[in-house]
Nucleic acid binder design. Sequence first.
RNA 1: UGGGAUGUAGCCAAGUGGUAAAGGCACGGGACUUUGACUCCCGGAUUCGCAGGUUCAAGUCCUGCCAUCCCAGCCA
Length: 570
Amino acid sequence: MNYYPEITPKEEVETDNVISHFILDFIDEDMAPGGQFEGLKVHTRFPPEPNGFLHIGHAKAIVIDFGTAELYDGLCNLRMDDTNPEKEDESYVKAIKQDIHWLGYDWGDRFYHASDYFEETYGYAEELIEKGLAFVCEQTPEEMRDARGTLTTPGTNSPWRDRPIDENMDLFRRMRAGEFPEGRYTLRAKIDMTSGNLNLRDPVIYRIAHKEHHRTGDTWCIYPMYDFAHPISDALEHITHSLCSLEFEDHRPLFDWVVANCSLPSKPRQIEFARLNINYTVMSKRKLRAIVEEGLVDGWDDPRLPTLSGLRRRGYTPRAIRDFCERNGVSKVPSVVDVKFLEYCLREDLNKRAPRAMSVLDPVRLTITNYPEGQSETFTVDNHPNDPKAGSHEITFSRHLLIEREDFMEDPPPKYYRLYPGNLVRLRGACIIRCTGCVKDDDGTVTEVFAEYIPGTYGGASPPGERVRGTIHWLDEETAVPCEVRLYDHLFTVEDPDGDTRDYHELLNPNSLTVLKNAFVEPWLATTHSKIGYQFMRQGYFIEDNHDSTNEHLVFNRSVSLRDSYKPEI
RNA sequence: UGGGAUGUAGCCAAGUGGUAAAGGCACGGGACUUUGACUCCCGGAUUCGCAGGUUCAAGUCCUGCCAUCCCAGCCA
């Protein structure tokens, strides 16, 4: 399989759950007559750092950044925030672009890099020096830390703070020229060492790094810090609204300081929102990378991971993910969304669109004793119960069938509607049968179940007088296609792995993956390869694994189970 | 002991001083059903972190307190 994710057509992911929230209110103000952006087009940007794979937390940011632009008929740029050559790599860029396209968003020809602006950014640094607003500092990292003060005590000025402008300029140019080793000098903004906001205590805006950059190569040996490069990049792209997560709230005064003191072509407004968290998983790139690199999962796209590539492999649809993000709303409350809500959004989408099929995950033989050996017939079943347009396909029936082991009990609890001796059950799409018994091996394991079909009930004809409450799925032993099925559960056993003091290795769910090697599906699936997968009736939604499934060896991942209100009465 | 934010049902989340505190998820009950699915009904906050105050009227305004989150990278 391994299909390459294409741009999802927009109408494929159209959702209409937009509700008003504070960001929209701010934008409305700004665009209204008298507002600071009156007459302009709303212009946002999504600025990932290419140092890891995108996860569903990013999806929220993407939906907000691209979605807001769409809402106002504006534009959203894609920009790689690549100001730290030490951590970033081109290989992530491709994956990031793929994931955004998959979600159904497009940046047109506006794909940029912070590194595109290194020359301009450098120029703004010289401007600050010229204005006496930046200085070259010689403090070591340790000295700088000591002089920064603490959360409750003010910092003290660097001894180099009042270096003459000419000297600053000379040193800064020589930093660029590569005359100094890493760490020897930094360029710092001259703001306020006594500020309660640590970000304003003369922050470093340029550091020396003799590192090859993935795009600019060895052109530069000094690199701007995020706080300096970001507002400049935004302004150069004429971004109106720079939407970011809450932890940058403290940085807004610095963002505004840069915008106010550099001769930039526009003045973007930064607005912060709470990032998305989901229980039973982790969302930090650092932790995800550790899990991947330690081989605890099968790569960045392991279906148990909250990465977009993992969710895609798991069978999540772009629509479900966008819907999830939109329905969660936008606020400033740090929140943890129940993973059940994510699952609900997937079922909501797949229920409408996924073709239905039958699969037996844990088979046991069912023999219809009054059906002749060697005989066989074909039934036509609808691909979707509520959507005739979805078409139909054929299944075969014969004396020996396969059913789910849990659909037979010799001695069932009350209100068990499935097979047990004497009980009537409907075989989905075929006929009604009466269970007549079973045989077991020496361990007491059921090895074969027996039943008789009730003549005249083929094709779903009305039951004969008795109420048939149970319907089970089944396969024809003759035509069933063997396959592998992978079932997934939470990656972690605790709701909040980040908040747990134990090492995360202890919190990993040992049963997060269950591989079923003895499962079967209808022959129809061997040729259909539905891109959004299938509903295996009474079980859940499954999709072919985009790494491992082949025509010779089908592999299905369970995207999400069906809701199940069956509660055994003990 | 600093600065910045946030507190409305188990989880998200509307609410921008005016009769009865949206909606969704989860959960429970019921109807329907050739998926114990879907769909459809019904159910929950005398109360909005707490305490005072202003007002004819406060979740919405004021004061104080409490709790939680973020910030001391030459990361983003």
